[in-house]
Write a protein that binds this DNA or RNA. Structure first.
Length: 110
DNA sequence: GGTATGACTGTAT
DNA sequence: GATACAGCCATAC
């Protein structure tokens, strides 16, 4: 039997709450889940669900606001274009105004 | 249970 | 700024 309160489930739940036009980092999600060093797990979890609907994985980037996983979206520009269509300026695979675009689950969901 | 891997992060060089 | 290394944790074999 599989736990419904999976680590993945928590990750998906947080990612789903990211508002359009914003983005967060793996580390922030991991920290919110109490696993400050579990950023890799967040990415790993997403890797098993990036094709899952309802999970805007394109709104999750690394700590520098870089679209580290753009290459996994089918096309190298899919992630960037999707973010731009939501109002996020992306340049060189990096989110502009990252500090202001950053959505911190610890603060927003506190 | 040991080893390898991973959409990460931070520090050091 | 780029490269190298270490840390952390869950999953797969």
């Amino acid at each position: 039997m599989k736990k419904e309160n999976d680590f993945f489930n928590d990750v998906y739940d947080v990612v789903r709450q990211i508002p359009a036009g914003r983005a967060t980092s793996y580390g922030a999600i991991a920290a919110y889940l109490g696993q400050k060093r579990g950023a890799r797990m967040v990415g790993w979890a997403m890797g098993n669900s990036y094709n899952k609907q309802g999970v805007p994985a394109h709104r999750v980037v690394n700590s520098q606001g870089i679209l580290s996983a753009r290459h996994l979206f089918g096309t190298p520009t899919a992630m960037q274009e999707r973010l731009e269509s939501e109002g996020v300026n992306v340049k060189n695979d990096k989110i502009q105004n990252w500090k202001e675009r950053f959505w911190d689950p610890e603060k927003e969901l506190h």
